Amino acid sequence: MNHRYTAALLVLVTVFSGVPAPVAAADQTAQCSFPMTVTDATGTDVTISEDPERVVTTNPSAAQTMWEIGARDQVVGVSQYASYLDGASEKANVSGSNGLNVEAVIGLEPDVVLVPNTTYTAEPDRVEQLRSAGVTVVVFESGDSLDAVADKVERIGRLTGNCEAGIERADEMRTSIENMERALEGVDHPVGLNVFFGYAAGGDTFISDVMTSAGLRNGAAEANFTGFGQLNEELVVEMNPEYIIVPSHAPIPSGPGFESTTAIQEDNVVVVDANNLQQPAPRAIDASETIMKAVHPDAYERYQELQNRSATTTTADSTTATATTADEPETTTATTAPEQTTESSAPGFSPIVAVVALVLTAFLRRRR
């Protein structure tokens, strides 16, 4: 199958998922030590016995997340679609001619395998084969927003022994989301439409949130178009998007319906790096920034100012924390954390728990 069409189908398969929704959020203590037990998106309780040293990612979004939290050295296997990542060519390829190569994964002797929803829904039998072989596998639920992506980043950091880095990167994403909202206050949102190979992202998708966070209204969502699905030109004419968002690996849409739209007539087509736009991973924020810069240049400038202020504040806080630590006594008694915590919901730390977890981590395990 043509590479670009396969990549598009990887996005589409997320919607038609048979994976159960995670259990409702409950108050619980998130931990950053091992062993830990989590309940994944399939409802399976998964125990990770030790701080993982060998991680396999079966989808480019999981690989991108490991790269973004500075944990690429732990990754021993990636899918073929993660080849765009710097250094990915040095990792084993766990993709086969017909999907996930189970034998290749087992041969890498991973401590944990990270399986995003797209892989599981396409190949649930192969995931079960891995589990039957004694491989530790964690399946992730589909995210329908940038906030959900940030939560997943935090969770992957915790599951792979990179708790602090996961929290830091997730918080950077959340700060960016907040700064976009502030920069766009009082700004009109024109109608936008994401199109790739005749399909579009409707409501309840993270791509829709990428667009709306950047200052667009998702015309497909407003037309009661949910998930990812095929467009017809009548619907395109009816919604008349002012902007069309296209991933870089897809052609600009054509045909009478599209040619009649304000977007095409005014050349308002925004091409976004497909690896940012179509993967629920940290660089999805970059996709929102690309769209905002094209659609709302003035708001984008305000956003950059807010980002710079946030970065300055973070640096100042870090400097203050370092100075405070230097003044503390050298000997500190650590409180022992519970050996195991069961997670029964989507990832997420409360601010207090996050602080406690970071302190405990410094004493209880090797920092990455």
Rank of each mutant, 00 (worst) to 15 (best):
D317C: 06
V356F: 11
I48A: 01
A357W: 07
V138A: 02
C163Q: 00
E68V: 02
A326D: 15
T212N: 00
S254D: 10
E259L: 01
E238Q: 08
R54T: 15
T333G: 03
A311G: 02
M173H: 06
N101G: 05
Q265I: 15
A104M: 04
A82I: 07
R365N: 09
E168S: 02
L306N: 05
D151L: 15
A122S: 13
E154T: 10
T37I: 09
K152T: 14
E234G: 08
I264G: 02
A26W: 03
G229H: 13
Y199V: 07
A316M: 03
N240P: 13
P297N: 14
V187Q: 11
A316K: 09
E141T: 12
L235R: 10
I352G: 11
V139L: 00
E103A: 11
A148Y: 10
T313D: 14
G348N: 09
I69H: 09
G77H: 08
A30V: 07
T14E: 13
E234M: 14
A311C: 04
N224T: 13
E339L: 01
P52L: 05
A82V: 08
N179D: 04
G134E: 04
I167H: 00
R182K: 12
A21C: 13
T322V: 02
L130E: 08
T320C: 08
V112A: 00
P20D: 05
P52R: 06
I207R: 03
T44C: 07
R309I: 15
T322N: 10
G18W: 13
V46E: 11
A148F: 06
Q64N: 10
G157S: 03
S318M: 06
I245L: 06
E68Y: 04
S142L: 00
V195Y: 03
E328A: 12
D73M: 08
F16W: 14
G77K: 09
L85H: 04
L12S: 13
S345F: 02
I245Y: 06
H296F: 02
R169H: 14
A170L: 03
N98L: 15
P190W: 00
G134K: 08
Y81V: 01
G215E: 15
M211W: 11
T205S: 12
T320D: 15
A299W: 01
A92H: 08
P241D: 07
V13F: 10
V237T: 11
T324H: 06
F206Q: 01
Q64P: 15
L108A: 12
A334Q: 02
